[in-house]
Nucleic acid binder design. Structure first.
Length: 483
RNA sequence: GCGGGUGUAGCUUAAUGGUAAAGCCCCUGCCUUCCAAGCAGGAUACGUGGGUUCGAUUCCCAUCACCCGCUCCA
């Protein structure tokens, strides 16, 4: 985004024009709170998810003491046994009873539990509902979980929910993963996937959607070390955004106040971003210290033992204190510090929200001199090369003199490793501008010198500068530049 | 959920109770040796559903979507 505040309508128009984001079911008039990614959008979002997976799961940064950290992934079903959501608290608590006032001129909406402390909009000296004219509705519950039915019978026993977060799939599989993959505490389990929340009022383009994708980590650690890991993940996650092109002045970590915290959370930091549609920073990710809450809940509700046994600590322990009493030894093995419920640090990021932030940040308008030297407006998406949907475009300068043949050969070579485009349509300047609008970082042009001397030009999206590179070096150059 | 606004082609904008116009974009061909050039063709629109009417894109009603402001966001 340029220094002037980006007009969201311009971004929305570009996203539609160039195939980043469409309204869902548009030919039927759309549906509120749902969005589709087009050919460019899917590449962008896929790159974002791949980069996250690579940087957090396959090759995470060293831990707080410089150690290697262990991360594994899962991919869980969207629909789970509904008891999961009772254990997590979503069935009981994922809703707020609301009361509307039907009084002419008021039409207020209040949370039922805060009615007695909310001033009446018409008569602020009284509280909502105390004024003679107030016509309050019965409290209505807005449960934010999408309901569905499993199997053919639509009765109460078949009710299930589309998951409102991917996290519970990880908690429910904690024992499976620790039993099957030789991981030792501390370790993290990661998941990328869709989640669904029946938001009362979707707003701000894709920012608050009813169907969205999360990139979540549940990092399990010893309770004594949890604060260290909480700080580690808070810093790692904040910095990650800046390495991918978000201006660090606009990425703002915010420690939640005590009154804001969910009752089970020991601490939560929201990583917020200054989106152009709001004067307030908006949440991209929440890094929450959830203590032992989730595993304990699932232990209680499932009846399964999800505590962790620290084999290493037990092996090192001085067993002589039990004096050979097997019963005492057994009891010790079943209790801290050898057996305990791990604490959890949860960095939970919104893939669509980050995609939107990347789009906002990338949008620039600048001036470029045309063939006659006149300054022309240009729209350019300045994506980080790792995220750019198209890494390079290949142009024959003119469609003759052997140039198309060389260009096509180069295109076929490059597309084995990168998403690239071939374009021989219209004037060369027009082709550059088309690539600028989808944020292609490099344009490779085959010209007369390629035919004679074997070199091509590589044009940089941001500086507009061209440099000549030997045809045989192009693949290596592009590989180096999009890392 | 409430109030206000908007809805004609991919975009920007016309006109009209009786065949919907243009520029840009896009496609095809010609031309073209580096930043939206030129020439010739071509495709594409009245958000949806009712009503009034001989006839509705136009008037009326409803609905949907988007934008702004409230409300909400475990």
């Amino acid at each position: 985004m340029s220094s002037a505040k980006l007009d969201m309508e311009k971004l929305v128009a570009l996203c539609r024009r160039r195939g980043f984001i469409f309204q869902s079911s548009e030919i039927y008039g759309g549906i509120n709170g749902f969005w589709d990614y087009g050919p460019m959008g899917v590449e962008l979002k896929k790159n974002i998810k791949d980069v996250w997976w690579n940087d957090m799961v396959r090759n995470p940064p060293p831990g707080p003491d410089g150690q290697e950290i262990t991360m594994v992934g899962v991919d869980c079903s969207l629909i789970m046994n509904p008891r999961v959501w009772e254990a997590s608290g979503h069935v009981g608590g994922f809703s707020d009873p609301m009361i509307d006032c039907k009084t002419e001129g008021c039409k207020g909406r209040f949370r039922a539990d805060q009615l007695k402390s909310t001033p009446c909009p018409l008569k602020p000296s009284k509280c909502a509902g105390e004024f003679e004219k107030c016509q309050l509705t019965e409290p209505r519950v807005f449960n934010l979980m999408f309901k569905t039915y499993v199997g053919a019978l639509e009765d109460a026993s078949a009710v299930a929910y589309l998951r409102p977060e991917t996290a519970q799939g990880i908690f429910a599989n904690f024992k499976n993963v620790s039993d099957s993959s030789r991981v030792k505490l501390p370790f993290g389990i990661a998941q990328i996937g869709k989640a669904f929340r029946n938001e009362i009022n979707p707003r701000n383009y894709t920012f608050r959607s009813r169907e969205f994708e999360q990139m979540e980590i549940e990092f399990f650690c010893h309770p004594d070390e949890s604060m260290k890991w909480y700080q580690y993940w808070r810093d790692v996650r904040k910095n990650w955004y800046s390495t991918l092109g978000l201006n660090s002045d606009r990425v703002l970590p915010r420690e939640q106040g005590k009154e804001e915290l969910a009752h089970y959370s020991i601490g939560t930091t929201d990583i917020e971003y200054m989106f152009p549609f709001s004067d307030e920073p908006q949440e991209l990710e929440g890094v929450a210290h959830r203590g032992a809450y989730d595993l304990t809940q699932h232990m209680t509700h499932s009846g399964k033992d999800l505590a962790y046994f620290d084999e290493l600590a037990w092996q090192k322990a001085d067993k002589s204190v039990y004096g050979g009493d097997k019963k005492k030894e057994q009891a010790a093995k079943q209790s801290p510090p050898y057996k305990f419920v791990p604490h959890v640090i949860e960095p939970s990021a919104g893939a669509d929200r980050f995609t939107l932030a990347v789009l906002c940040e990338a949008y620039h308008e600048d001036k470029v001199a045309d063939a006659s030297g006149k300054q022309e407006e240009r729209v350019v998406m300045r994506f980080h090369p790792r995220l750019a949907p198209v890494k390079a475009a290949i142009f024959p300068l003119v469609n003759k003199d052997g140039m198309p043949e060389i260009a096509e050969r180069l295109y076929r070579e490059l597309k084995r490793d990168f998403n690239v485009q071939y374009d021989d349509g219209g004037a060369i300047g027009r082709r550059y501008r088309r690539q600028d609008e989808i944020g292609t970082p490099y344009c490779i042009t085959i010209d007369g010198d390629t035919v004679c001397g074997g070199s091509v030009t590589i044009r940089d999206r941001d500086t507009l500068e061209q440099r000549r590179v030997q045809l045989s070096d192009v693949v290596g150059e592009i590989r180096k530049m999009v890392k």
